[in-house]
Design a protein around this nucleic acid. Structure first.
Length: 308
DNA sequence: AGCCCAATAT
DNA sequence: GATATTGGGC
């Protein structure tokens, strides 16, 4: 009680120096924290607080924990054995329950709350940090906003520097992985190759995704110092991953309204679009949730997306 | 370690 | 169809 909610806190991914300054001195954005990292940090804080306060009372901190993020807590705890098969069989089991061998797993589900309440005392830092890396993330959806950011970064790093890791760092999007970028970059390169190779052709209807985003004029190769080409354009302000999208509308900071959109599970309430002129929202989703995979190709026709 | 690319999986 | 994963070469 009296502690700020997660929404009141300055995001850990928040840059502490102006982007332009960072750019001028060639300072890369900090490695981003995933929601799980944040969660771990808060768990640590709570543990410390508890050990200090325990001397005075037997206050129940569980409720505090629960406000942080239900789903994530669950997943952190659940991760101890990183077996994919388990999850599947769990899900498949459904009502069957005939196989007695699943008892162990059921126990784990039932005692989740108890676990999260108890686990915090002895260091649960290890499992959760492992979770942040091991846990299978939901599919990344390359929204026009994200793609724009991607293109901008690629365009302003030289050809030389436009590699997955660097791009990822400069995009500074919470939860974005090198693999995400690598995959997208691969497709993007194919698109570029196709486009410049067959310049006589009309716009090939296939890749509407990239077709609309303006190409970075000349991929000049800002040499090693990288001190040259980078001025004049806006540099990453961190995107925010909608960590608790499942919980409802989150109050969003002025520039924080463009997180990664995930296709399933717990991220679906961020229908944050400026694109009112598309029927996208009505086709594949109900009031506030996406169902399964959604075709986003047509969204890439949108232009004029800002950094903020 | 990380990049690249094609093939393939989900 | 969009994205993820894998595997081999570098």
């Amino acid at each position: 009680m009296g502690l700020p909610t997660p929404y009141d806190l300055t995001p850990l991914s928040q840059s502490l120096i102006p982007p332009e300054l960072a750019s001028a001195f060639n300072i890369f954005p900090e490695p981003h924290r995933t929601p799980l990292d944040v969660n771990r940090a808060s768990q640590n804080t709570l543990s410390n607080l508890r050990s200090q306060l325990n001397a005075f009372s037997s206050f129940n901190f569980k409720s505090l924990n629960d406000t942080t993020g239900q789903k994530h807590d669950t997943m952190v705890v659940e991760l101890e054995e990183e077996e994919e098969e388990d999850d599947r069989t769990e899900a498949m089991d459904g009502d069957g329950s005939g196989s007695g061998s699943e008892a162990r797993k059921l126990r784990r589900i039932d005692s989740e709350e108890a676990d999260s309440a108890l686990k915090t005392e002895n260091s649960m830092d290890d499992p959760s940090s492992a979770a942040a890396r091991t846990l299978k993330r939901p599919r990344l959806v390359w929204t026009p906003q994200l793609h724009k950011r991607f293109v901008d970064v690629v365009g302003h790093l030289g050809i030389k520097n436009a590699v997955p890791k660097t791009i990822m760092q400069w995009m500074n999007v919470e939860g974005l992985t090198r693999e995400n970028v690598a995959s997208h970059l691969q497709k993007y390169r194919l698109y570029l190759k196709r486009k410049q190779g067959l310049s006589s052709e009309g716009p090939s209807a296939s890749d509407q995704l990239f077709a609309s985003t303006p190409l970075p004029q000349s991929l000049h190769e800002s040499g090693g110092g990288c001190g040259s080409g980078i001025f004049g354009m806006p540099i990453p302000v961190p995107y925010h991953y909608p960590a608790t999208a499942a919980g409802g509308m989150m109050p969003m900071p002025a520039y924080g309204h463009m997180g990664i959109q995930m296709v399933n599970d717990y991220a679906h309430n961020n229908n944050n679009n400026n694109n009112h002129h598309h029927q996208q929202a009505s086709m594949n989703s109900n009031q506030n949730g996406y169902h399964g995979n959604v075709a986003y190709g047509h969204m890439f026709q949108q232009r004029e997306l800002e950094w903020e």
